[in-house]
Amino acid sequence: MTINEIQEEIVEEFSAFDEWMDKYSYLIEIGNDLEGFKDEWRLEQNLIEGCQSKVWVHAELDNDKIIYSADSDAIITKGIIALLIRVLSGRTPDEILNTELSFVEEIGLKDHLSPTRSNGLLSMMKQMRLYAVAFKAKMGQ
């Protein structure tokens, strides 16, 4: 599936929820299920300190694809992270850099990624892009 197909898939899934409560239950569920962030990555340099919740991001290259891992101390934040990882992880830097993350707005979570939210998610998204830029530069060498 392309990145955009995954975005559409997520939008589709979320369209099944009529109640905000169901949407958040789902975020909590996938937040709880998000695994794979190794303790050795829990470093100061990987930490994005939001005022409300903390986010850790790690990225590494697997051949030409970027594998993202992330974690947060707040579950809703973690749920949104899980969605971002589902869309962006395992993609090439070019794919990542050429993608508009339109699904966030379409499933009504844009609020959580606004600069005033101070939950670390916006900085995390920027950080994910920065990794893509950096890996792209490295691969071009």
Partner: peptide, 12 residues
């Protein structure tokens, strides 16, 4: 429960 999660849900 993280305060952020509680605050977010109560806000809703």
């Amino acid at each position: 429960i993280h305060p952020f999660d509680m605050g977010t849900m109560l806000d809703k």
